[in-house]
Simulated assay, not measured.
Amino acid sequence: MICDEARERLVGQLRQLDARELVDVLREVLPLHDESEGSYRATLILAQATLWARDAPEEDHDPADLSAVAWPDRAYYGNRLGPDQGFWEDGQCKTCGLPVTSNAKRAQCPACGSACQLT
């Protein structure tokens, strides 16, 4: 466990990162905190919540959408973080069915690690 001062320094450093860089740092940290036992595997992932205005027509969408943030496929993007366009690419992992979003059309599912091609 780190002291409060070290934690505050870390928080300050993380706040300086843009969203793509923060996602990339978390890609290296979150999967280390998984639990597997018998027939299940639980892992920490980053998610994006989209909350729609209360006056939006209900037939258009649910009041809230939750998608896992998929890691850009660094191999596809030449060991880079993919395009800097915000988290506009979305879809569903074909392997585990998890709804995902990413800044990149080519990404990896944070839950199962499968390649995802997003739109």
Rank of each mutant, 00 (worst) to 15 (best):
M1K: 13
I2N: 14
D4M: 05
A6Q: 09
A6W: 07
A6Y: 09
R9D: 10
L10M: 12
L10G: 12
L10K: 04
L14T: 07
R15A: 11
Q16F: 04
Q16W: 00
L17D: 13
D18K: 01
D18E: 07
A19I: 07
L22C: 09
V23P: 07
E28K: 11
E28W: 00
L32T: 15
D34H: 14
E35S: 14
G38K: 08
G38V: 06
S39T: 11
S39P: 06
R41W: 08
A42R: 10
L44R: 11
A47T: 11
A47Q: 08
Q48G: 02
W52R: 10
W52K: 08
A53G: 15
A53L: 11
P57C: 11
P57V: 13
E58G: 10
E59D: 03
D60G: 10
D62W: 02
D62K: 11
D65Y: 06
L66H: 14
S67P: 11
S67Q: 03
A68L: 04
A68V: 12
V69N: 01
W71G: 01
R74E: 12
R74A: 11
A75Y: 05
A75H: 03
Y77I: 07
Y77C: 00
Y77S: 00
G78T: 02
N79A: 13
L81I: 06
G82M: 06
Q85S: 08
G86R: 00
F87M: 13
D90L: 06
Q92F: 11
C93G: 07
K94E: 10
K94C: 13
T95Q: 04
L98G: 06
S102R: 06
N103A: 08
A104M: 02
K105N: 09
K105S: 15
R106W: 02
R106G: 11
R106M: 09
A111F: 09
C112H: 03
S114Q: 00
A115D: 12
C116H: 13
L118T: 08
